[in-house]
């Protein structure tokens, strides 16, 4: 028993936090999803079993919202990872005195409050005398209405790419300088060095950023909420997590349905777990982490 006491003590703070901030909300959400708790039944909610889930499946817009979510996650993820990688490579190839300030600049949106950041985007995308995009394209439109998906993906992506940029930059810097020398002597061009030496060595950081961002994009909705609130029109950019929020906490006429929203959130947790398992499988996670990250000679 004593043998396990010390490791257990070391693990206890993290365990406590996970129990408190992950397991408890998940269990509470699942319990909530089996009730009909809403504004009208607030005083005496009753157990309804799987009714909320049946209602969800019967919802004619569920398919559209599911496809919206897939589109949003896939396109934003591609932009985040691709752009992050591109920025990391470009800023690592130029001298540090140019690369470092450029990266610092690209980090600015991340330290802006989302509301302020979205205001800037709304200004950029507005009609002619105000909107920079309208000015530059010579077509005066409210681009937020004309191309809502592009706006949502780019607004998210410009913030999101900086995460990958930082992770990939530090991973590139961790590659020993002599490996680049060896590649040059072996006859590789810069592009060949990137493709045959750098990218394979970035496999693990790429997995990490992709997996992490998939999960965070599945559940994040604040930029869409602030930019389009799921519009324009009827559910054009409404994603799963935003729909759960709308149902449970921000419905029109004050008729909020906690139970139904909780059911949507619970489904999202399941999707998240399935996606995680999928990533661990295709990237052969075990083999990747068991390989030494630092070569000690």
């Amino acid at each position: 028993m004593r043998r396990y006491l010390t490791p257990f003590l070391f693990l206890s703070p993290a365990t406590l936090l996970i129990l408190l901030f992950f397991f408890t909300p998940v269990v509470a959400t699942i319990l909530l999803s089996f009730t009909d708790l809403s504004t009208t039944t607030f005083q005496n909610p009753s157990w309804v079993g799987l009714k909320n889930y049946q209602d969800l499946l019967a919802d004619p817009f569920l398919k559209k919202i599911f496809l919206n979510t897939a589109k949003y996650v896939a396109l934003t993820l591609a932009f985040n990872v691709g752009m992050g990688l591109l920025l990391a490579l470009l800023t690592s190839l130029v001298p540090e005195r140019y690369g470092d300030p450029f990266r610092a600049l690209w980090l600015l949106p991340r330290i802006l409050p989302p509301v302020v950041y979205v205001f800037i985007w709304q200004g950029l995308l507005a009609e002619a005398p105000m909107g920079l995009v309208s000015d530059l394209l010579g077509v005066s439109k409210n681009w937020l209405v004309a191309a809502p998906w592009t706006a949502v993906i780019l607004a998210n992506g410009f913030v999101g790419a900086s995460f990958g940029m930082l992770i990939f930059t530090s991973a590139i810097r961790a590659i020993p300088r002599e490996l680049f020398y060896a590649a040059a002597v072996d006859g590789a061009t810069t592009w060949q060095t990137v493709r045959k030496v750098v990218l394979p060595l970035l496999a693990w950081p790429i997995l990490f950023v992709t997996a992490y961002q998939t999960l965070s994009l599945l559940t994040s909705f604040e930029y869409i909420l602030l930019l389009t609130d799921g519009g324009p029109g009827f559910y054009t950019t409404e994603v799963w997590s935003l729909r759960a929020y709308h149902l449970a906490l921000s419905n029109y006429f004050g008729n909020v349905e906690f139970g139904l929203g909780a059911a949507m959130a619970a489904v999202l947790v399941v999707i998240g777990v399935v996606v995680s398992l999928f990533y661990l499988k295709i990237f052969n996670f075990k083999a990747l982490v068991s390989e030494p990250k630092i070569e000690v000679y």
Partner: peptide
Amino acid sequence: PRDRDVGMVFQSYALYPHLTLFENIAF
């Protein structure tokens, strides 16, 4: 360097860690 026709051995060997010895030598 690629136009100079030199071969080089480094102190740390600088082998590509993701490639087999065969692919390292074949590089």
